[in-house]
């Protein structure tokens, strides 16, 4: 027996409420997002188009217009022959310095911090939390406060101005965030696993190498992303702890662009800027979600 209301259902609301794709809400929502996205993309766009123009075109046109005549000359110059005031072999020297700094710094800092985080999470010993607290609070101390004592220590050790010294500095300052990251991650793994391994007779290093390490690949990748981008982008430590021939890329870039000698070549500057930003950008675009996870894990739980 049909219900009376069903009989007139043809004119009645049925199913999902019809919505226009261009509702006011959607226009405001996507409109705002698009405008914001344009603002964020604009500098990248400007960098790219500027780096592909010749200097005459730059002087005539505006910075937003696409290149009329595409030239890769600025890129070649930025890489190989741009002058920093000291030498004229371009960014390539800085690039290789940065590679020599970033690779060992990343590996050593992650190794030290992961073992440390594991010790803190699973092998708590008396006093560990005190040191850890100092470490975390220390992460908020401006680097400027600690820089000079480190200079003295490194000078005493005879490695001030060397890449080794800079690697040690990066390991030190990467420690708070990385230790926190690993400690929290290892603490989130089921404790039974650790207990079972201990009952099976595995020791400190065995549990780390055979159980924790294989289970924690994602967090190692997150830590690598954090460190590679962080160390590559560093400027302060580079300028303080290296000499001109071992300057990392960021320092060299700044010297090229802000060097007061000669005519400003904006296209070369932008090509150099893009070249320096390329490594972290590639890491960012490739890692995507893990990058987000890294900053969320490192920041929110901190």
């Amino acid at each position: 027996m049909p219900d009376p209301v069903v009989l007139k259902s043809g004119a009645e609301p049925w199913g999902a409420k019809p919505r226009r794709a261009l509702s006011r809400r959607n226009i405001v929502l996507y409109g705002t997002l698009l405008v914001a996205a344009l603002y964020y993309l604009l500098p990248l766009y400007v960098m790219i188009v500027t780096s592909l123009k010749g200097m005459p075109e730059i002087r005539l046109g505006n910075i937003f217009s696409p290149p009329v005549e595409i030239t890769f000359e600025p890129w070649a110059k930025a890489w190989a022959t741009a002058c920093t005031g000291l030498n004229c072999d371009g960014l390539s020297r800085g690039f290789w310095n940065s590679v020599r700094i970033t690779v060992p710094s990343t590996l050593i800092s992650i190794l030290v911090a992961s073992v440390n985080g594991y010790a803190l999470a699973n092998w708590r010993f008396k006093g560990a939390e005190v040191f850890f607290t100092i470490l975390i609070v220390g992460a908020f101390i401006p680097y400027q406060v600690m820089i000079y004592p480190i200079v003295i220590v490194l000078r005493e050790m005879g490695i001030y101005g060397t890449l080794t010294g800079l690697v040690i500095v990066h390991t030190i300052f990467g420690m708070p965030i990385l230790t926190l990251l690993f400690r929290n991650y290892f603490a989130s793994l089921p404790e039974e696993l650790f207990k079972a391994a201990r009952i099976d007779g595995a020791g400190f290093w065995q549990i780390y190498g055979r159980i924790m390490l294989p289970m924690s690949m994602p967090i190692f990748v997150v830590a690598m992303i954090l460190q590679i981008t962080g160390i590559w982008n560093d400027f302060l430590f580079g300028v303080v702890f290296t000499r001109p021939d071992t300057y990392p890329m960021t320092v060299q870039l700044n010297n090229i662009v802000n060097s007061v000698q000669g005519v400003k070549e904006y296209n070369v500057n932008m090509a150099a800027t893009l070249l320096t930003g390329a490594v972290p950008l590639i890491v960012y675009f490739v890692s995507g979600r893990l990058f987000v996870r890294g900053i969320a894990a490192g920041a929110v739980k901190g």
């Binding site: 400027f235 870039l253 800027t273 930003g277 890491v283 900053i295």
Partner: peptide
């Protein structure tokens, strides 16, 4: 932009 250095 957060992936880029302050220098860039």
């Amino acid at each position: 932009p957060f992936a880029l250095s302050f220098i860039v």
